[in-house]
Design a protein around this nucleic acid. Structure first.
Length: 320
DNA sequence: ATTTGGTGTTGTG
DNA sequence: CACAACACCAAAT
């Protein structure tokens, strides 16, 4: 199989060369700006989640991260379309429970429209294909994976693509997001994470190949049905089934591990579903962040619970 | 509030 | 083939 030509049908050539011309991304682009914003906003989010029970005032948060209250508010607005107050509101248990409540019906509706047709559901308009069991079992042997690092609204992203579509998306920032024991990944750590998933694949750095995917994924104005984002699901059968149903959860909705288990016809497999969701390689695009514990708790996130919270808050600013 | 016991799938030896 | 590890969950303290 020839691997020389990426042969990406999806991103228009114009967009691709424009992006490739100045990697990682043009300095003035909204994406680069929001990435820089995130680095500063992150500390505020971490503080908010740590102290959320006390519902701290804006003044207190601003003081904690070394910004003036007005600066913090405008930064938040630019980043998420949300004031810190609204953001705080959007990540409370109450709000999460509400998401869960109408998440079920939203999922039903999406599935009704979705899985049958070729034009796929999902707000991001993803078209996916799964890899054959043989291709998966070999640990990616014979597969060429192109990777690149790019700014994103949630820190520096690592994208991995085959010639058939986006295969993985993760984060590579140096700053530690939780007080978990796990060290901050950084670029090397994030890449190692990917290599662990497909130990026998060939990894080639190629920012030009991955840039269009990242640009499309994080810019809602480019989420268009006529240009679906091409995605490749590489995993075991059960995992792929779980990831496919993740794609049906609409923006601004959420579901629980248990509900997801019932959805795929394995009502007692909530825990197995949790494990599979946790192994989702394509963060954000396959919205594993929209799965919560049945109580509305955030439970876990491979790239840090703080980031899960950030993404959910960011999406809350985009749904209303 | 916390503990406990039942879970399905995957990866390891 | 057995066994441990899990981003769970509901019921019983």
């Amino acid at each position: 199989m020839p691997t020389a030509a990426p042969a990406l049908a999806d991103p228009p050539p114009a967009a691709r060369s424009a992006l490739a011309a100045s990697s990682p991304l043009a300095a003035g682009s909204p994406l680069a700006a929001s990435c820089a914003d995130y680095e500063r906003v992150r500390a505020a989010i971490a503080f908010l989640s740590r102290e959320r029970l006390r519902q701290p005032s804006i003044e207190e948060v601003a003081r904690a991260v070394g910004l003036s209250p007005s600066h913090l508010t405008s930064l938040f607005r630019r980043w998420a379309g949300l004031t810190p107050k609204d953001f705080l509101q959007a990540i409370t248990l109450d709000h999460a429970r509400r998401l869960l409540k109408d998440g079920a019906s939203a999922l039903d509706a999406a599935l009704e429209v979705g899985f049958s047709g070729p034009g796929r559901l999902h707000d991001l308009f993803v078209r996916h294909e799964a890899m054959s069991p043989g291709e998966f079992k070999s640990g990616g042997a014979g597969l060429t994976l192109r990777y690149g690092f790019h700014p994103s609204p949630f820190g520096e992203a690592l994208a991995v693509a085959t010639d058939r579509g986006l295969a993985a998306l993760g984060w590579a920032d140096e700053t530690r997001l939780d007080d978990r024991a796990r060290p901050a990944p950084g670029r090397e750590g994030a890449l190692a994470d990917m290599r662990r998933r497909w130990p026998n694949a060939r990894f080639v750095e190629d920012e030009a190949a991955t840039a269009p995917y990242v640009a499309r994924a994080f810019d809602p104005s480019l989420w268009r049905a006529d240009q679906p984002l091409r995605v490749v699901l590489i995993g075991a059968d059960f995992e792929v089934r779980v990831w496919e149903s993740l794609l049906a959860i609409p923006l601004g909705a959420a579901t629980s591990y248990g509900a997801l288990a019932r959805r795929i016809g394995a009502p007692k497999a909530a825990r197995a579903v949790g494990a599979a969701v946790g192994r989702n390689p394509i963060s954000f695009v396959v919205p594993c962040h929209r799965v919560l514990g049945s109580s509305g708790a955030l439970t876990g996130y491979h790239w840090g619970v703080t980031r899960k919270q950030a993404i959910l808050g960011w999406e809350a600013g985009r749904v209303g």
